[in-house]
Design a protein around this nucleic acid. Structure first.
Ligand SMILES: NC(=O)c1ccc[n+]([C@@H]2O[C@H](COP(=O)([O-])OP(=O)(O)OC[C@H]3O[C@@H](n4cnc5c(N)ncnc54)[C@H](O)[C@@H]3O)[C@@H](O)[C@H]2O)c1
Ligand SMILES: NC(=O)c1ccc[n+]([C@@H]2O[C@H](COP(=O)([O-])OP(=O)(O)OC[C@H]3O[C@@H](n4cnc5c(N)ncnc54)[C@H](O)[C@@H]3O)[C@@H](O)[C@H]2O)c1
Lengths: 241, 241
DNA sequence: AAGAGTTTGTGAACGTGTTAACAAAATCGA
DNA sequence: TCGATTTTGTTAACACGTTCACAAACTCTT
């Protein structure tokens, strides 16, 4: 269950970037891409931080884990920094993904064009339903569940997405692991157990909405003494300098 | 940008539950529901923690923020604890949601049956595309964008979901806020600025996969001296006692 | 009733994440 | 060349989250 020791610079290149930083690097990458498209060649941490929606100090600290890629008194070269982050994130290559469960969500994911620019390629679709197997979804033929092993090994697939109903999640995870998958993104509302060395990330959309509902309830109960429920039209708060 | 001061027990009922705990309570709720369905009446923190995939001490500490709902030497009454968490999370009522952007993802969300049992109801669908407006998706007629205000105020909608392309996200957020929405779940890969008092949560599926890709890369580079890339068949690690 | 066994609730130690503050290192104008 | 200015990289303080460990509070057996 231990994920990664962070600040471990044991071997040469490995630097042990904190989890929180790893989760933000793609945000910076997106902001840098946006700046590059606008023709911006260089930018300061303040500007980039604003684009990314984070504190400038946090941004600088995050970047410092990668190395010293900025120039004091100047800022960061957009293209250079973009490349450095992309390299660190493993985006100099494409990562093939297999989606298991081609229902509503699996189909939406398959159709999504935005993955390709982030180095993610949906390489295979798998479903247990014989009626779905053989159909073409977003240009990919849906394969049967028992071809997972060959699919994963033939193409070099290392990431699996679980988009099946919750009761099937653990079995699917087991099959993915057995097929050689070492990273899983799980959309099913179920806890899946995997051997050490396999990473699992969970995306639970119900929980996201439940968290918002919780805060709504708090606001509502705090508003008992507030203005009767007027639609207060505050202007959009922008953090700009 | 400040979210919530945590341990603030200023007024009577409000207890200021830490964010990390709030995010886990729905997981416990789900585990408790599963136990209740199995006819389990009472359970210890160890069992519940295993079901939820967390450390037992963490579970107990989380529950302690709600009050003392367990019995020492015995455990927790499943139904009682279930109700207490549901009440704290605001799940004694249903929360209406409007989804803006009825494309691939918006349609998948609309069709999802799992929200209803979590106190979430998709109450309205909105799209800017005249071709989509008027069509029926999962039994709901898609409304035009400029009816947001009336939709939100007529029904008591407090949560909005952004499922439009990224360039439209900020404008949609502004319109949602103008319509009276105070909680937003954003699926578009864009940072949206909102006035204080409005909560925004971001779900970025590309980033989830990019994080997995990062760890894959690390494993790959660490494996340079390891066993040539054999499919190591470790048995699924279960935390059970 | 007392002792053995169980399990909660929480204090305290530890680990991770955030942010203010500032020295170090660059640019630029005179 | 030097001083003023800018902006990075990093230190150190703080905030938040996790987990161990144990007293307190309960049950059960004898
Ligand atoms: N649709 C949403 O918006 C949404 C929202 C939140 C959570 N989720 C979760 O995502 C998952 C998928 O949701 P969905 O709406 O796409 O469901 P769905 O029922 O539309 O699709 C599920 C697909 O999985 C396939 N399947 C079932 N068992 C399988 C197995 N053992 N192996 C391979 N494939 C199998 C089915 O044939 C079907 O095609 C569910 O766990 C759901 O709870 C979905
Ligand atoms: N589909 C996925 O699996 C997936 C994965 C990751 C991220 N996303 C993100 O989710 C969002 C939606 O993705 P999608 O695949 O459903 O896109 P989509 O193109 O299928 O659907 C977008 C919908 O939004 C509508 N729209 C556009 N501008 C609008 C506006 N101003 N107001 C209201 N509606 C508007 C369009 O008419 C369309 O119906 C995108 O931001 C995408 O980047 C989607």
């Amino acid at each position: 269950m231990t994920i990664l020791r962070s600040t471990r610079l044991a071997d040469g290149t490995a630097r042990g970037i904190p989890d929180a930083t790893v989760a933000r690097l793609p945000v910076y990458l997106r902001a840098l891409n946006a700046l590059a498209e606008q023709g911006v060649l260089s930018c300061a941490s303040n500007e980039l931080a604003e684009q990314a929606g984070v504190n400038p100090a946090k941004l600088r600290k995050d970047l410092s884990y990668l190395g010293s890629y900025g120039t004091r008194g100047v800022g960061y070269d957009v293209e250079y920094l973009r490349y450095q982050i992309a390299r660190e994130m493993g985006q100099t290559q494409d990562w093939d993904v297999v989606i298991v469960g081609v229902g509503n969500l699996g189909s939406a994911l398959s159709a999504y064009q935005g993955f390709s620019t982030r180095g993610i390629r949906v390489a295979a679709l798998v479903d247990a339903d014989p009626q779905r197997v053989g159909t073409v979804v977003s240009g990919i033929v849906v394969s049967p569940l028992d071809t997972l092993d060959t699919l994963v090994s033939e193409r070099q697939i290392s990431i699996g997405v679980i988009a099946t109903p919750a009761p099937a999640a653990q079995e699917v995870a087991d099959r993915l692991v057995a097929a050689g998958i070492t990273s899983i993104l799980n959309f099913a509302p179920a806890i899946v157990q995997v051997p050490e060395g396999v990473d699992v990330r969970k995306v639970d959309l119900s929980i996201e909405l439940q968290i918002l509902a919780y805060h709504e309830q708090r606001k509502a109960s705090a508003d008992t003494s507030a203005t009767s429920k007027a639609t207060s039209k505050t202007t959009s708060k922008v953090v700009s300098a």
